[in-house]
Amino acid sequence: MLIPRFEYHKPSTLKEACEIKGKFKGKAQLLAGGTDIIPNMKKRIILPDSLISLNGISELKSNSVSGKNRCARIGACATVSSLIRGKFLLPYSALLTGLESLGSPLIRNMATIGGNLATARPAADLSPSLIAYKGKAILCSVAGKREVSLDDFFLGPGKTILNDDEILAEIILDELPACTGSGYIKLGTRKALEISLVNVAAVIALEKPDGVIAGARIVMGAVGPIPLRATTAENLLMGEKPSDGLFAEAGKAAAEDSRPIDDFRGSAEYRRDMVRVITVRALQKALHDIR
């Protein structure tokens, strides 16, 4: 399979990359891991005039844990495997599970966290947990930087709030408060090389050990045009003591919050039922993660 011809740019700074992207407007695409865009170019689904490689920009690959609130800053071009190996994401169990269940080892060695977000695939493995952690994105343009909540990042399948001259540069995760845990469950057909039929990430925080739930965020993937918050389920959890019964209710509420469609991979009905099941499991994992 041939890749249609394009003009190749390999800037060495983020600023330069933003300039090029701005210049070509919508006709340029970014190249990071390539695991999404290259197949799509081969299939002629995406046909950019220019590709801007971000792989020469070292600042996009650097990760750090810093600041007085010990937030994790993840470079957008960090590969999935480097983040698994890096250990600094260990507290973020749901994200780690997502990283480990993305594609296959071959894909994980190439795919980047930024790419997984910016391609905005509804079934992506990383966005649900990153949203659930109240993750933020740093978007860079020639004009400067802006910080946005990942809650607001996605607009639709393949669509984000990134402007033509903007590049996703960094993802920021705040340090998890005490008594916080998270879990991610992906449902697929095979045990590897899978696109999620449904996935759910849950983060819960307890007021104190064995206390009531003081914070809950549940994000569902592949059941809507963008990752969806299960807000009814979240509200139902707040102020309650975790229990199987409570989680079951939250699962039902999450299923109601989901907006799945029928496609050749599965029916809306099945997906909705699975949101119910795996929300419960994600919550149980999150609770277990606290303990």
Binding site: S104, T189, R190, K191, L193, E194, F264
Partner: peptide, 28 residues
């Protein structure tokens, strides 16, 4: 468990690839 070639209403194959025509991996 997995394998099925799927078509749409126009007779177009929906999964002519190894991503969507799922043969077992080493984990299955």
């Amino acid at each position: 468990l997995f394998e099925e070639v799927k078509f749409d209403q126009k007779g177009r194959m929906l999964n002519p690839n190894f991503g969507e025509y799922k043969i077992p991996t080493a984990l299955d």
